[in-house]
Structures are given as C-alpha cells and as structure tokens.
Amino acid sequence: MTEQAFFVLTALVGEPRHGYGIVRQVEELSDGRVRLRVGTLYGVLERLASDGLVEPDREEVRQGRLRRYYRLSESGRRDLEAEVARQTANVATASARLRAARPGLAGA
C-alpha cells in the first residue's frame, strides 16, 4: 500500500469526505508532509474504488457545484487494519534493534 493510499484510507475512517476534505485531512494527519495534488488524489481514489476499498457515499450540491463524498468500505477498513499491524510490527522490530545497538551500550 502506498503512503498516499494509506493516508486517504485513514482520512476516511469514521467520516465520509469529499475530494478537498480528503486533501486537507491527509495534510493534517501527516503534519503537512503529504500534500495530495488533485490529479494525484483522483488517481488514488479511482484505484481504491476499483479495489473495493473506498465507495461513494452521497452527493451534495454546494454553490451550484456537485460534491461527491466517499467512505471507507468494510474491505478498506480490513486492509487498513492489516497495514497498520504490518507497520506496527516493522516499527517494533526496528525500535528494538536501535535500542539494542545504542552507542555507549556496545560491548556492555
């Protein structure tokens, strides 16, 4: 799972969002590190939708413009949980090795 897809799925946890809502939420969740450009967002959304991880929620008209909202599907939630478990295990492994090899402890 790419970092962009990971953050888009995370942004949709608990609340359906429209395109720009996802862009803002991803930027906030990543502390400004991941800034999705609109073309990139829709490429990611299309891929997630075709994999069944994201689905349309509803449409609203605001200022004469159609806004489509997306939500996390059950399958998307399961994939995100699996990715979180994988990344958590990786972090635990790397952290343990870094702690064990902390300078000053070598040979102690």
Partner: peptide, 30 residues
C-alpha cells in the same frame, strides 16, 4: 467532482482575483 475539488482549494481567492487566477503548474502537472 475534480472541478469542485480544485475550486474548493481556491476558496481563499477573492472575486476579483478569480479573473486572473490560473491553475498552478503543480495542479496542471497532476
């Protein structure tokens, strides 16, 4: 939907600025 998302991102541009505003190169590139 794409247009709505683009324009939501340009909401802080005032009415007068909209006439001269252009998509950024980064948006066009995406």
């Amino acid at each position: 939907d794409l247009v709505a998302t683009f324009l939501d991102g340009a909401e802080d541009i005032d009415e007068a600025g909209l006439a001269d505003a252009h998509p950024t190169w980064s948006e066009a590139g995406s």
